[in-house]
Design a protein around this nucleic acid. Structure first.
Lengths: 261, 261
DNA sequence: TGAATGCCGTGCGGTACCGTACCGACCAGC
DNA sequence: GCTGGTCGGTACGGTACCGCACGGCATTCA
């Protein structure tokens, strides 16, 4: 197992606002679906504090045990939540894209978690200082309720991942992972090496090669040097284990506003 | 894999208050450590609504997707949260004992979850109607903060379980499971068949036999027809993987009040 | 007392994934 | 054009767990 992500060196990237002046429009903020779900009044109050940020591949948003300075709302980026063991082995426990938020421990009260958040697919996001999200959360209004319901959906994703790890074959898990990622992107192409996927799923790189070849042989995907193209999404959905549908259904149930987007 | 828990037939037990009149004293309520952590004023307000309940082995507190009527605070019982797959395979994603509460989805806003809660070790507990816990939670006071911090600890347990499932050998996982259960009991004996443990860990019964024999050969436990006695707890702690310590540490950090009990 | 049942130990072939190693294809740099 | 690095395909033995089957032993109950 590789001890660090191949993209780990990207940590050197400075995390800077991508605009000189930090004015984010309401419509831009609503590219994130949790922000989209907020009433106008709530969003307007936070808007002056929201910054757009660039989220390059491999950027570590937080490290195990470190206190968070912001919560992140991905818009076009995807972030993985990883648990890392002492020997460097790791496993992804959840994926967060434009449907969610990174840093729930801030409003849950813990300030930190023993996990790591890494950008899995580069793109853009928005961030809000920790004090601001805590203040909004403690108003006991729509922000709190949306965040809590999202957290429950996240819990479902984590738990289903645990069961899937235990019982399902690697190519089914890969299918699930591809679909979860695809749901959080616009197109049907992922920029993602097999090595990275192996880290996410907590297996060897060769295992991913083997599983990906199966999917490729079935005409479902097309693989080439860090670029995966999904050719037959319905086919992939037929091949995947139930875990994907369970998680998706729970997101839709808990956050019905997302469905419409 | 066995499709239903061997103890499943115990569902026939009626879930009844064990006393004719439902007066629970504050000191009795404080046998549960989350209730223990509450200020006097908060606890007194809920006390008239708290009922003591008997929690026999195998009792299902809630089933996947079903709306919950109460939250349960175990005192001497232990409850397992299981995810069950379509084919009957299952895996435990968390354990709840006197340090916690069963039914977080009530205050998280989802009302239900796709998981199952089963009594893993018979004993007593307390319960509070769903309306009452929601009302308390929405006061935005100590109850909410304690529940949220507990939920975050629970999330850590679930995530660490997922990683452990992926990377660690069965006898290490069994050690972790034994220690987690032991922490939630008084003595050093568990009433638990290998079949049940296999369901919890999501493996074959024979796998548990093998792993338990290893621990027995090392003089750490003693096994006999549904009774496990832990002989050498420090030895077990040396043998277990890091996952146990990570979870325990996070519980202590998030809920420091529990440490003192 | 005999039968049924629950619980635990064992054996055996199968398989999915691991660890390690190597190799070819492609790409970016000087 | 050469070189070093990244990425993906292949091979092979090892091993942890699975599925299945059997058998022994204790408890319960007719």
């Amino acid at each position: 197992m590789i001890a660090t992500l191949s993209g780990g060196q990207h940590c050197r990237f400075r995390l800077l606002p991508i605009l000189g002046f930090h004015v984010v429009s309401a419509s831009k903020a609503r590219q994130n679906q949790l922000l989209w779900a907020l009433p106008d009044a709530e969003l307007q109050r936070s808007l002056p504090l929201i910054e757009p940020v660039d989220l390059p591949l491999g950027l570590v948003l937080y490290e195990s045990g470190r206190t968070l300075s912001h919560v992140y709302f991905p818009t076009t980026a995807i972030v993985s939540l990883l648990f890392v063991l002492e020997d460097g082995d790791s496993a992804e426990i959840a994926v967060v894209g434009r449907e969610g938020v990174v840093g729930i421990s801030l409003f849950m009260g813990g300030e930190s978690t023993p996990s790591r958040a890494v950008v899995q697919s580069s793109g853009l996001g928005l961030r809000l200082p920790s004090a601001a999200i805590k203040a909004e959360f403690n108003r006991n209004g729509p922000v709190m309720h949306v965040m809590l319901r999202y957290t429950q959906a996240l819990i479902t994703q984590m738990a289903q991942t645990a069961v899937c790890n235990r019982h399902h074959t690697l190519d089914k898990q890969l299918s699930r992972w591809l679909l979860l990622s695809l749901d959080r992107l616009r197109g049907n192409e992922l920029v993602m090496t097999q090595d990275l996927i192996a880290n996410m799923l907590g297996v060897r790189r060769e295992g991913i090669t083997e599983a990906a070849l199966k999917l490729q042989a079935a005409g479902l995907i097309q693989y080439s040097r860090g670029h995966i193209t999904v050719l037959d999404r319905p086919g992939l959905e037929r091949r995947v284990c139930e875990c994907y549908a369970v998680v998706k259904k729970e997101y839709d149930r808990l956050l019905p506003a997302l469905r419409a987007v």
